[in-house]
Design a protein around this nucleic acid. Structure first.
Length: 191
DNA sequence: GCCAGGATCGTCT
DNA sequence: GACGATCCTGGCG
C-alpha cells in the first residue's frame, strides 16, 4: 500500500472527504481504516478557519496533505487532514476508524473499552492511535504518521452523506460521509 | 439501554 | 469570561 501524497489533498475538500473513507490511517504500530469523515471549508461558519487566520488555525490555510490536530473541550485531540491549495482554508475531520493493526496496544491505551469502541469517535481514535497535539502540522505522507490509499476491496462500498455531528453552526450542511453497513461509525447514520 | 451532567483548557472577545 | 468539530460516568428503569 502507498501513502497518499499532497496531490491527493490538493482538490476540493468535498471530493477529498468522501475519497478518504476506506483509506488507512497509520501512526506508529497502530492503524485503522477510515469509515467516517466530515468536510469543513472557509465558507462554513462551523469551520475553525471561518472568520480569519489565527495562530491556532494557521495549519488549515497551509499546504495540503498536512495534519491539523487541535484540542477539543480541553481533553480530546481531534485529527484533520488539510485539503486544497496553499492559502485556501479547508480540512477533513476523521471521525471514526475500524481498527486493523496494533489492536492490543489500542486496548492498553483505552482500558475497559470494548473493541468496537476503540476508534468509534474523533477523540477516541486519536487516543487509540496515540495522536497528540505535537503532530499538528506534521506530514500525512511519511512515518510516523501517514494515510494509505484505499485498496480495491473498498471500490464498491456505498457511502452515505448526512448532517455533521457535535457542532452548533451550519448543522444543515450534509458534509458528513460514512461507509454504509459497518459497525464502527461514531453515531447512528442518517435514516 | 437511555439520558443528564461533569470534566478540563486553549483560544478568542 | 465564555465556549467548544467530545467522552465517560452514574442514576434510573
Amino acid at each position: 500500500m502507498r501513502a497518499l501524497g499532497p496531490g491527493f489533498f490538493d482538490r476540493s475538500v468535498h471530493e477529498v472527504a468522501p475519497d478518504l473513507v476506506g483509506c488507512t490511517v497509520v501512526h506508529g504500530d497502530t492503524a485503522g481504516v477510515i469509515v467516517e469523515t466530515e468536510a469543513y471549508d472557509a465558507t462554513d461558519p462551523a469551520c475553525h478557519a471561518f472568520g480569519g487566520r489565527t495562530p491556532r488555525n494557521e495549519v488549515i490555510f497551509g499546504l495540503p496533505g498536512l495534519a491539523y490536530v487541535y484540542l477539543s473541550y480541553g481533553i480530546h485531540s481531534l485529527l484533520n487532514a488539510v485539503a486544497e491549495a496553499d492559502g485556501r482554508a479547508a480540512a477533513v475531520l476523521v471521525r471514526a476508524l475500524e481498527p486493523v493493526a496494533g489492536i492490543a496496544l489500542m486496548r492498553r491505551r483505552r482500558p475497559g473499552q470494548p473493541d468496537r469502541e476503540l476508534c468509534s469517535g474523533p477523540g477516541k481514535l486519536t487516543q487509540a492511535l496515540g495522536i497528540g497535539l505535537e503532530l499538528n502540522g506534521a506530514s500525512l505522507s511519511e512515518p510516523p504518521l501517514a494515510i494509505l490509499a484505499r485498496d480495491d476491496g473498498w471500490a464498491g462500498v456505498e457511502l452515505v452523506a448526512g448532517p455533521r455531528i457535535g457542532i452548533t453552526k451550519a448543522t444543515e450542511l450534509p458534509w458528513r460521509y460514512s461507509a454504509a453497513g459497518n459497525g464502527f461509525v461514531s453515531r447512528p447514520r442518517p435514516a
